[in-house]
Deep mutational scan, measured.
Amino acid sequence: MMAYMNPGPHYSVNALALSGPSVDLMHQAVPYPSAPRKQRRERTTFTRSQLEELEALFAKTQYPDVYAREEVALKINLPESRVQVWFKNRRAKCRQQRQQQKQQQQPPGGQAKARPAKRKAGTSPRPSTDVCPDPLGISDSYSPPLPGPSGSPTTAVATVSIWSPASESPLPEAQRAGLVASGPSLTSAPYAMTYAPASAFCSSPSAYGSPSSYFSGLDPYLSPMVPQLGGPALSPLSGPSVGPSLAQSPTSLSGQSYGAYSPVDSLEFKDPTGTWKFTYNPMDPLDYKDQSAWKFQIL
């Protein structure tokens, strides 16, 4: 009977010793046993002879290597770790002494450095960015050149030099007046198309007034536009458009034309069986010896 009264063996659950049927240790109110408190290391007290050895090595170098620390530790009968900690504390003490010396050398008012006064946003004049500046400075420094007289040679050079070769001289006033084509001369031969040399188009003023001019072949195509416009036809070669000034309004060009419109200028042929003959000019830059190549039959 006494065997049943004795408590059973101890069981360990999660490293906790349980005594038989008792489960009081598993209750929430019972805390787990805490780790033992780490003991504080005792402070090391250095003797005068030990301090002399350490100070002598510190005077040589503030960062001794492990071999120098072990050698000193053997002399003063201390572990190497204590020597390492002593050098660490000695360097910190040396830095603190240097900072105190710097503070003593500075004057009393030198510690508080005078800061520059901050400028207020409204006091300083700042350039306004509302208006974009002129990058080319046209509004201040540029002045347009004065327009020359209508009959000045410089204007003629600016007008005619675009179309004339570089080897030719500017046309005088008398020749510029001949550039304007007359109405009857352009409409006299509506079906004849003559190819003149390129030099005649640039230099010869008579080429624009003769039936064999460069633009005589364009007349049949330009004249039928007159009834559609409801007024006189516009002429690209009329009046002052080739003269001194090219800047004319469309209203000033509306009254200039080749001449009176005639039914002869239409595109319809009077004789459907007729042929169109292209007159060959020996001055043509295209060297075609066979003139029969310039004739064709309209079917």
Rank of each mutant, 00 (worst) to 15 (best):
T45Q: 05
F278G: 00
P172G: 05
E268L: 14
Y214C: 04
Q39F: 13
K120Y: 01
I138P: 10
A29M: 11
R82F: 15
K295R: 09
E173H: 12
R115D: 01
W163A: 00
A247T: 09
L286Q: 04
Q99S: 09
Q256N: 05
A59D: 05
S128Y: 03
K102Y: 02
S164E: 01
K277W: 12
T251V: 09
S252K: 13
W276M: 00
F201G: 01
S81M: 04
Y208W: 15
G110H: 08
P165R: 06
Q99V: 05
S204H: 10
L25G: 00
P147L: 06
S19C: 14
S128R: 07
K277N: 00
P36L: 08
A68Y: 07
Y258I: 07
F87S: 14
T275Y: 11
A29T: 04
I162Y: 01
L78T: 14
P79C: 06
P36D: 08
R48Y: 08
T44D: 12
S199T: 04
L218C: 01
K88P: 15
Y195C: 03
S292Q: 06
Y142P: 11
P108I: 07
W276P: 00
Y195P: 00
T187Q: 07
S143H: 05
H27M: 14
I162G: 00
T129N: 09
A196H: 07
L229T: 03
F269I: 03
G274I: 12
T251A: 08
P172D: 07
M225R: 11
S128Q: 03
P64W: 14
P205N: 01
A200D: 00
P36Q: 05
G110F: 01
G109V: 04
S188C: 09
P31D: 06
S257Y: 12
S188V: 07
T155Q: 06
Q175H: 11
M225I: 06
A260Q: 04
S182V: 12
R48A: 05
S81C: 07
Y221D: 01
L299R: 00
H27G: 08
T61M: 09
P153C: 11
E53A: 09
F269L: 02
A121I: 06
K277Y: 12
P236T: 08
R119G: 02
V30M: 02
L54S: 15
D219L: 15
F87I: 14
P64F: 11
P125Y: 07
Y67I: 05
Q96N: 06
P149S: 07
A68D: 08
Y221H: 02
G239T: 06
V30S: 02
Q228Y: 14
N89D: 15
H10Q: 04
P107S: 06
G239S: 04
E268A: 10
R95M: 13
Q62M: 05
L286D: 03
G243C: 08
V13Y: 03
L237Y: 02
P21V: 13
A68T: 02
G274Y: 12
G239V: 10
Y288R: 14
R95D: 11
P144K: 09
L218H: 01
L146N: 04
L18V: 03
P236C: 14
A166L: 12
R37I: 07
D219N: 14
W276G: 00
E268F: 14
Q97W: 07
D130V: 12
H27W: 14
S167T: 09
F201Y: 03
